[in-house]
Simulated scan of single mutants.
Amino acid sequence: MAKLEVSSKRVMLRNYVTGFSQETYLELSQGTIVLKVPQGSNAILVKNLYLSCDPYICKKGTVYRKPYLTYHELFKICSPKKGEHVFVSAASGAVGQLVGQFAKLMGCYVVGSVGSKEKVDLLKNKLGFNEAFNYKEEHELDAALKRCFPEGIDIYFDNVGGKILDAILNMRTRGRIAACGMVSQYNLEQPESIKNLISIISKQVCIQGFVSHEQYHLYPQMLDTLLPYIREGKLVYVEDIAEGLERSPAALVGLFSGHNVGKQVAAVAHE
Rank of each mutant, 00 (worst) to 15 (best):
A2L: 11
A2N: 15
L4W: 04
E5I: 05
R10L: 10
R14V: 11
N15Y: 11
N15H: 14
T18E: 15
T24K: 12
Y25V: 00
S29R: 10
Q30L: 13
I33P: 00
L35M: 12
P38C: 06
S41K: 09
N42W: 00
N42Q: 10
K47G: 08
Y50T: 03
Y50L: 13
S52C: 15
S52N: 11
Y56V: 13
I57P: 08
K60W: 06
G61P: 05
V63G: 06
V63M: 10
Y64P: 14
Y71P: 02
H72N: 12
E73P: 05
F75Q: 10
F75N: 12
K76I: 00
P80Y: 03
P80I: 02
K82D: 01
E84H: 13
E84S: 08
F87A: 12
V88L: 07
S92F: 04
G93L: 05
A94K: 01
V99Q: 00
G100M: 04
Q101V: 01
Q101F: 07
F102V: 02
A103F: 04
K104W: 13
G107Q: 08
Y109W: 10
Y109I: 08
S113H: 03
K117A: 15
V120T: 01
V120E: 07
K124S: 00
N125T: 14
N125Q: 14
L127C: 05
G128A: 04
F129I: 02
N134K: 06
Y135G: 06
Y135V: 06
E138H: 07
H139C: 07
A144I: 08
A144P: 03
L145D: 01
K146Q: 09
P150V: 05
I153W: 01
I153C: 07
D154P: 01
D158V: 00
D158M: 00
N159R: 04
G161L: 04
L165D: 05
D166A: 13
L169Q: 00
N170Q: 13
T173F: 13
A179N: 08
A179P: 03
M182A: 13
M182F: 12
M182W: 07
Y186C: 03
L188D: 04
P191E: 08
P191Q: 10
E192S: 15
N196I: 04
I198H: 15
I200V: 15
S202F: 15
V205C: 09
V211Y: 02
V211N: 05
H213A: 00
L218M: 14
L218K: 11
Y219D: 14
L226W: 02
L227C: 06
L227P: 07
Y229I: 02
E232C: 06
E232S: 11
G233K: 07
V236E: 08
V236P: 01
D240T: 04
R247L: 13
R247T: 13
A251C: 15
L252N: 05
L252Y: 09
S257F: 10
V265N: 03
H270G: 10
